[in-house]
Design a protein around this nucleic acid. Sequence first.
RNA 1: GUGGUUGUAGCUCAGUUGGUUAGAGCGCUUGAUUGUGGUUCAAGAGGUCGCCGGUUCGAACCCGGUCUUCCACCCCA
Length: 456
Amino acid sequence: MAQKPSIPRGTRDFSPEEVVKRNYIMDTIKRCFTTYGFQPIETPSFENSETLMGKYGEEGDRLIFKILNSGDYLNKVSADVYSEKDSLKMTSSISEKALRYDLTVPFARYVVQHQNEITFPFKRYQMQPVWRADRPQKGRFREFYQCDADVVGSDSLWQEVELVQLYDAVFSALQLKGTTIKMNNRKVLSGIAEVIGEADKLIDFTVALDKLDKIGEEGVKKEMREKGISETAIDKVQPLFTASGNATDKLNLLSNLLSTSQVGMKGVEELTFIVNSVETLGLQSASLEIDVTLARGLNYYTGAIFEVSAPEGVAMGSIGGGGRYDDLTGIFGLKNMSGVGISFGLDRIYLVLEELGLFPDTASANTKVLFINFGEAEALYAMKAITKLRQQGISAELYPDAAKMGKQMSYADKRNIPFTVLAGASEMDASQYTLKNMKSGEQISLDYEGLVRKLQ
RNA sequence: GUGGUUGUAGCUCAGUUGGUUAGAGCGCUUGAUUGUGGUUCAAGAGGUCGCCGGUUCGAACCCGGUCUUCCACCCCA
């Protein structure tokens, strides 16, 4: 046997069953997006490097897949850069294109490029694969799908309210009960950093705070000390470590803590509006929670931050995330264009639904009836019926070869085809079909009309 | 990118201190059954032990490298 072929690490093949299940999730999400008034766009799988580089931080740049230039790319590298052996410098001269890292930055590029054709506020959704040169783990791949819904051109907090509802609508439609939509606000985080006198260490502070549920209170404090955050500052944020109670309690706590910070109070105000609105309108199956430690997300979030976690008991990272970015298109030259959006992690949602056994049976569409092949004349007789059945929208197929019957039956069995039709010389003489129910083993003789009635 | 882990038949896995011809279960093929699948019984096919190199009289087993799997960190969906 020759060397077995393989696929790159972090990528996957999908079997028919898996594709059907993935389509079920995507169709559900798409239907919800449409209901909420979002319109689909698509962008290329690769962009010019300068569109992507520098938008996700230093870490992000490292994780972007670069595409090697075509042709004699080394020839175009200057002798200096070549002899320096500096990979970073070299990259820019041998690679001008890169695979899409997420859907948000390409969307920002799209908005700027097509600003004159777009009617604002623009609500778009996009479901396409993205690529990251990450090291794979469970639920982490190097090629995976994101399903994004974003609104640009509106500052209204009603968008945030609707996006929370949209999360709830999708997870409810998928029968995935008990998801938690965690919400925070970048302004609140800025406010905290401000009142504790560490405004310049905002990023270090938030990254450390974000790890609370993972490394615990002491771990967070340790990391904050290592990053040079003062002991008095850490004392001041102490209430956050033990924040509990419902949204109102947490908002009160934040109000007290942030009373001297203008930006902080603005964040609290925003959170309050969203929480109150959602509470009044109601959610079907998800719950909305304020999580002051939620800090993840890209550097460009400026207002609300969202993250969705799977129901309790399912070991999986976040299955969705999003937030408000006041000036995303600014980096491409279009100022004052606020956007807010959410993302669904298709691959992780798949793993969660699989673990909880939540895929419906209908998510495994299949051939309904297999006609057994007894030979030339019999096959033609079968094909006449098959042709008509297909026109009625009934999926039917003929076993292509006049193989032994046992083999044909076992083919139907393995493919879980619920019915077979046996039509040989005696059936042809009588213009009949013998329909066999593969589950019960029951067989009945029918004319074509009877066959259609049974299979519909 | 850092540290660890995994790889043996199509699949799930055994394989003794390094020692003749590398095993099991499931699956597959054929037959018992020439118009009947699932159950049963019998026989059979299928492996460069991830790949490359090293140590050794001798390597699935020891060592190095590499690829892959999973995990932790980093970061993230």
